[in-house]
Design a protein around this nucleic acid. Sequence first.
DNA 1: GCTGAGCGA
Length: 148
Amino acid sequence: MALTMRAAVAAPRGLLRLFCTNSTASSPTFPFTSTPPSGATSTRQMADPSTNLFVSGLSKRTTTENLRAAFQKFGEVVHARVVTDRVSGYSKGFGFVQYATLEDAAKGIEGMDGKFLDGWVIFAEYAKPRPPPGEAASNMTKQYGRPY
DNA sequence: GCTGAGCGA
């Protein structure tokens, strides 16, 4: 039942795998039955391992405290932030959570991905690395993209 | 006060 609800709710990038569960072609009458080059059905759910977690599917009224409290139960959360709009001031519906270690981040994903928060199904995934400032590095030396 | 896919001050 849980897998059905994940497919119903908007999924980030792993949604495509749910629709492509059929391996061997059952209708050889189609000209598009060309055998795929790879054929591997694994190693697709894990992105680049990092302590930064991208949490999406958050409720509009979910705050940073709720996000941190929800992920802190699975590991030590170093930093948590719910992205809010600068103009309206309301949350955009997604946030970022950074764990102390990679294993805590993995446990956080396995523990909070596809779970309910504020009545909405949230999705935990590794966040993409942010571009460095390049110049003026004397202001903020630490960046959440590359903790190591 | 809020739209509901997507990546931040």
